[in-house]
Design a protein around this nucleic acid. Sequence first.
DNA 1: TATATATTTGTGTTCGAGCACACTTTTTTT
DNA 2: AAAAAAAGTGTGCTCGAACACAAATATATA
Lengths: 349, 349
Amino acid sequence: MLKKKYTIADIATMAGVSKGTVDRVIHKRGKVSKKAHEKITKILKEIDYQPNLVARNLKKNKTYRLLVLIPDPEKDPYWAPCLEGINTASQEFQAFGVMIETFLFDPSSTRSFNARSKEVLKNKPDGVVFVPLFYKESLTFTEYCKKNSITLATFNSSINSNNARSFIGQDLHKSGRVAGGLLHMLLPGKKHLAVVHMDEIYQNAIHMQEKEKGFRDYFDGLEQKHQIITHKIPEKDIRKIRKSVRGFLETYPEVSGVFVTTSKAYLLAEALPETDTRIRLVGYDLIEKNLECLDSGHIDFLIHQNPRQQAYLGVSYLSEYFAFDKKIPDNKLLPIDIITAENYTHYLE
Amino acid sequence: MLKKKYTIADIATMAGVSKGTVDRVIHKRGKVSKKAHEKITKILKEIDYQPNLVARNLKKNKTYRLLVLIPDPEKDPYWAPCLEGINTASQEFQAFGVMIETFLFDPSSTRSFNARSKEVLKNKPDGVVFVPLFYKESLTFTEYCKKNSITLATFNSSINSNNARSFIGQDLHKSGRVAGGLLHMLLPGKKHLAVVHMDEIYQNAIHMQEKEKGFRDYFDGLEQKHQIITHKIPEKDIRKIRKSVRGFLETYPEVSGVFVTTSKAYLLAEALPETDTRIRLVGYDLIEKNLECLDSGHIDFLIHQNPRQQAYLGVSYLSEYFAFDKKIPDNKLLPIDIITAENYTHYLE
DNA sequence: TATATATTTGTGTTCGAGCACACTTTTTTT
DNA sequence: AAAAAAAGTGTGCTCGAACACAAATATATA
C-alpha cells in the first residue's frame, strides 16, 4: 500500500545513468540513446514513477495569472456568491503561485462585456474563467484565447465551443424535470400547470427554454395528461408585472401550480392577489427575496444552481492545472439541489 | 492586488541580518537580540510575510500517516461512498506526503471496533479520521489519541469529546424538521403522521431520537395540531417487519405519512400491502434499494447525508493540516440534501 | 587583562526536479 | 587518417525554507 517514493536520482542509479538522462526521457527532450531510453522507460513503468509535484512547483517557481470575468452582483444578486467562491479558491492557490483577479461586467449589456473582456485580454492572463452570457461575443472571445493559448473554463452558461476546456454548471433540462416532479407531488390529481418566464432581458432565452422542455418532458412521461400553459413576463416594473399576472390568472383560473424558470419567482409571489393561496410555486436561486417567500410560504420549492460552487470549481480546476499539471475535467454537472424553508440555511454557508 | 512575494532572504537583506536570524524569529527559536527581533517582527508585519508552502513542504519532506477507521460497507451499504471520498482525497494529497490507509470494522460489533482501533493505534499514525459509532469505546479511543498526540477528526456521528479536533456531519434535528416540512407539503390538511425507527441494532438510538425531535418540532410550530405516532421496528427478518407494519397500519388506519429515521425506508415500502397507496414516505440515504423505491414511487423523498463528502472532508482537513499547517475547522455541518426520483443521479457521482 | 562562558549571528547544506552547459563518445565528412 | 559535426551523457547550480554547525560578539569570572 505505502509504496516507496522514487526520485529521479534513484532512477538514475537503477538505470546506471545520470539524472540528466532520466530527465530527458521523462520530458521527451530527445538526445538519448535507444538503449538508455528503453531501460529508463521500463524502470519508470515498473515503479510507476510519480514526480514530486512539490519539488517541481518550487523549481518552476512561476506565477500564473488567472482572471475571472463574471456579471456584477450589484446588477444581479444571483452572482454574489460567486465572489465568495472565487475568494476561497484564491486563498487556497495563491500559495502555489496562482494569482487571481476578478473583472465584473453588466449582465444586461453586451457592450460592457466586450469592454471588460478586452481589459482581461490586455492583462495577458494564463487562464480565464468566465460566464459566457452573450453567445456571439463569447465565441469571439474564446477564439482569441485559443489563438493566444489562454486556457479557458466557463461556468453557469455553456457555449458550444471547443476552444473552452471546461464547463461547470447544471443540466437545465433535468432541473426542469425536477421542478415538474415537485409540482406533481404537491398537486396530485391537478392537471393545470404553467411555466412562467420572468426576465426583463432575453439573454436567458435558451436557458429558460431548456428548463421548460425538461418540465414538459416530465409530464409527457406520465400516464395522466396535463395542461401546461406557457406565459412570458418580460417586464421590469412591478405594476406591469402585477397586471400581467392578473391577466394570466383571469385567463387560466384553473392553473394551480407555476414553475418560474428564472430567479424572479418572488416577483410572481408578490404580484399574486393577497387572497389567492391556490398557487403552488417552484422557482430558482437562493436570493434574499426568494428566501423570504420560502419563509412566508408563498414559494414552495427553489432549485439551487450553486453559483458559489460553480465559480469555486472553475477557478480550482484551472489553478490545479497550472500548479500541478492536473487534467481539467471537460464537464462538471453539479447536483440539482432542492430547497425548502427548512434547509436553505446550510446552502448559504 | 498582486503583491510581491517576499522570501526569507529578502527579509534578511531588508533587516540587515542573515537569513538564519530571520528564521529564528519566524519560528520563535529564541537566541535573537531584542533589537534584531523587533526589527524583523516589524518587517514581517509590514509586508505580511507568507512563507512559501511549497518550499517548506519540500524541505520537511516528511510523510504523514493518516488512518481512516469506518464501518465496513459490506455490512451496511450506506458506508460505500465513503471509500470513494477517501480515495479521492488520498490521490490529491499523496503528492504532498500524506499516506492514507483505511481500516474497516463491523458496525454491529463493538468487539470489531475495538480490535480494529487497536490495529490503527499499533500503526502509530499521525492522524486518524473515524466514525465514533460506539460512544464509550470511542471516548477511550480519543483519550488514547490525545495522550499520544494523534490528531483526530470524526464524521457522521459526533461524540462530546474535546479530544477530537473536528466533526463533519449533519444537523440531525434540522434534518428531522426538513422531513416534517416535506410531509406537510405532500399532505396538506392531513393530520395523522408517524415516525418509524427501523434498525435491528440500537447504536443509532440517539440519532433517531434527534431526528424525531426535529420532526415533531416542525409540527409543533404549526397552527394546526397534528397527531404523530412513534413506532419502532427493531427487526431484521423481512417477515417480522411485514408483521410489524401490518399491525401498525391496522392500529392506526388514519396515518397517511411516515418518516423513517434510518436508511431502511425501503423495508417499510416493501412491507406495505400492494394495494395500499395512501402512505407518503420520507426516509434517509441514497442506497440502492431506496433509489429503486424512489423510482417506483413508493418513497417520495430521501434525505441525503452525503457520506462521501463527509469522509472526503474529514481526510482533506487533516491532510491540509499536516501538509500546509492549515487550521482544522471545528465543526462542518453539511447541507441537508433533499432527493427525489428526478435528481438523485447527480448525487451519486 | 586574560580566559571562560553565554549569547547572538552567519554560512552552508539539504529536499527533488529542471535545465544550462560542459564534456565524452560516435558518426560523418574531407 | 584527421578534422568536423553530431549525438549522447554527466555535472552543477537554482528555486525557498529549515536546520545544523561554525563563527563572532557580548558578558561573566578568575
